[in-house]
Design a binder for these strands. Structure first.
Lengths: 248, 248
DNA sequence: AAAGAAGCTTGACCCTTGTCAAAGCGGAAT
DNA sequence: ATTCCGCTTTGACAAGGGTCAAGCTTCTTT
C-alpha cells in the first residue's frame, strides 16, 4: 500500500507501460505485488481505427474498456433510428459500465479517431477486487462518478439553454484536455456538429449557429474543428448560475 | 438487530422483516449465514414525514438508503436555484449511489409522502461484499442499472417531445407500480406537476396541458393527482419509435 | 486532377414550448 | 367550518430552437 513505486520518473513510466490505466483510471495505491496481479488481468490493448465499433448495444458484456489513446463516443439508439450520444471519452476514461447490470452492452462505443484501449475482463476485476480492497473501492467510485456525470448531463439537458449547453460542453472538454496535458484553450474537436448536437439535445444547425455567435462576440474562434478559446471567462459567466450548486 | 417478533406463518416475513431489501433491492441467493451477516449490517429503518429531507447535496456520505415504504424524489440544484429532479423512487429502490465517488452526497433526497427507509452503511456493505461475492456482484449490478436508467433519461431529455416524455413517464410509473403489486392503470401521483416537469425537462404548464390533451383523446383520465390509464397502448404507440432499440 | 460525398454555415419560416396572467379548486391549518 | 395558500388549469402571446433549403468548404476517392 505504501508508495515504494515512486522512485524516479522512470519508475512511474515503467509501472505504467502496460496501460495508461494506472495514471488516470486506476490511480490507487497498490503495492508491487498487487500491481503484478492487476497486470495479469489487464489484457493487451486493442487498436481501433476511426469509425470502428469497440462494442455495440446488445452484444454480450464481458469486459470494461479504458481508453489508452484516442477518442470515443458512446451512444444509444432508439428504435426509429434517433441517436443519443451519451458521452465522449478520452484517455483514462472507462466504457462499458452500463453492461454490468444485464450482461449485455447498453450502448455503442465508437472510435472517433484511431485509438487504443485496454480491456479489463470484468469477472476477473471483480474477483481481484475481493483480494484488493482499494481496488474494489476504486471501482465503486468509478461507477459512482459515472452516475454523477450522468446527473450533470440531466441538469444540462433539462434546464439549460442552447448557449449554456454549448458553453458547458466546451469548458468541460477544455478542462479534461488540460488535465491530460493538452492545451486548454486551443484544441481540435474530434466529433461532428451533429454528434455534439446529439449529446447536447440540439440540432446540428443550432450548434453551428451558436458557435458562430460565440465567435462574433469574440469569445472564441472557430475554424471548422479547430477551436480556440479567447475569453473562457465569458463562457464561464454564461453557465455560472446553472451549474451544480456544489461545484464538481 | 434481527426482529425476533414474528414466527412461523410469517417465516417469509421474518426473513424480510428487517427490510424490504431482500425482496426487491437485494434479491440474491444468500444462505442463512450470509443473511445473518447482512442483517447485522443493515441498520434499523428510519421514518420520514412528507417533505422531509433524507439527505442533502453536500452532506457527508456514509450510507446508501433503500426505500422500504413511501416515495422519494432526488434532485440536484444549480447555483441560481433551478432544480433538476433526477429521479422518483419507490419501495426497493436505492438512493445515494452518487455519494460514493466523493464521499459527499451529490443530490438531495426528499420524501414525497410519509416514508420509511433502510440505512446501508456503505463501508460495511463494501467489506461484506468481499466475503460474499454474490453480494458484491449485486452491488455492481445495482450501480450499473442506475447508469442504464440515467442513459435512458438522457435519451428522453435529448430526443423526445413533450408528449413522448410524458407518455414514457406515465408508462414507466405504471410498470414499476404493477411490479410492486399495485394497479398498473389506476394510481395517484405522488409528485406535483412542477416536479414532473423538472424531471422531464418541461414547464409545469406544459405537463398540465399535455395531460389534458391525453384526457381529451380518451387515453387516460386525470383528476388532479389521480390518474387512470384507459388506452395504455395509445401511449405505448406514442413512444414506440423513440425508446431504446434493445428493449429494457 | 476531378468529382463526389460529407460536413458546415446561413437564411427564412414555423412549430413547440416557455412566459405571463388570471381564475378555479382543494387541502391544510386555525 | 372558514380562510388561506398552494397547486392546477387554461388562455394569449412570445421566443427559442427546429425544419427546410441552398450554397460552400474540405476531404476522399478514383
Amino acid at each position: 500500500m505504501s508508495d515504494q513505486n515512486q522512485h524516479t520518473i522512470h519508475a512511474l513510466k515503467v509501472s505504467c507501460s502496460n496501460c495508461s490505466l494506472r495514471e488516470l483510471c486506476l490511480p490507487i495505491g497498490l503495492n508491487r505485488d498487487e500491481m503484478t496481479q492487476l497486470d495479469a488481468v489487464i489484457r493487451q490493448s486493442r487498436r481501433l481505427k476511426r469509425g470502428e465499433y469497440l462494442f455495440r448495444s446488445g452484444e454480450g458484456f464481458k469486459s470494461l474498456f479504458a481508453v489508452r489513446t484516442g477518442f470515443f463516443k458512446t451512444s444509444v439508439a432508439s428504435q426509429d433510428g434517433r441517436e443519443q450520444v451519451t458521452g465522449f471519452l478520452m484517455s483514462g476514461e472507462l466504457m462499458g459500465l452500463d453492461g454490468i447490470s444485464s450482461n449485455v452492452h447498453g450502448c455503442d462505443a465508437i472510435a472517433l479517431e484511431d485509438s487504443e484501449v485496454c480491456e479489463l475482463p470484468f469477472n476477473r476485476m471483480e474477483s481481484l477486487g475481493r483480494d484488493i480492497p482499494s481496488l474494489q473501492h476504486h471501482f465503486f467510485r468509478l461507477m459512482s462518478r459515472e452516475i454523477v456525470r450522468d446527473q450533470n448531463v440531466m441538469l444540462l439537458l433539462g434546464n439549460m439553454k442552447a448557449e449554456e449547453r454549448l458553453a458547458a460542453f466546451l469548458l468541460n472538454l477544455s478542462q479534461r484536455l488540460s488535465t491530460r496535458g493538452f492545451a486548454a484553450n486551443d484544441f481540435i474537436l474530434r466529433m461532428s456538429r451533429e454528434e455534439i448536437g446529439s449529446f447536447l439535445g440540439l440540432k446540428l444547425e443550432t450548434v453551428s449557429r451558436t458557435l458562430s455567435k460565440f465567435q462574433q462576440q469574440g469569445w472564441l474562434s472557430v475554424d471548422h474543428k479547430h477551436i480556440q478559446l479567447i475569453k473562457a471567462d465569458a463562457l464561464k459567466d454564461l453557465i455560472a448560475g446553472c451549474t451544480h450548486a456544489n461545484g464538481v
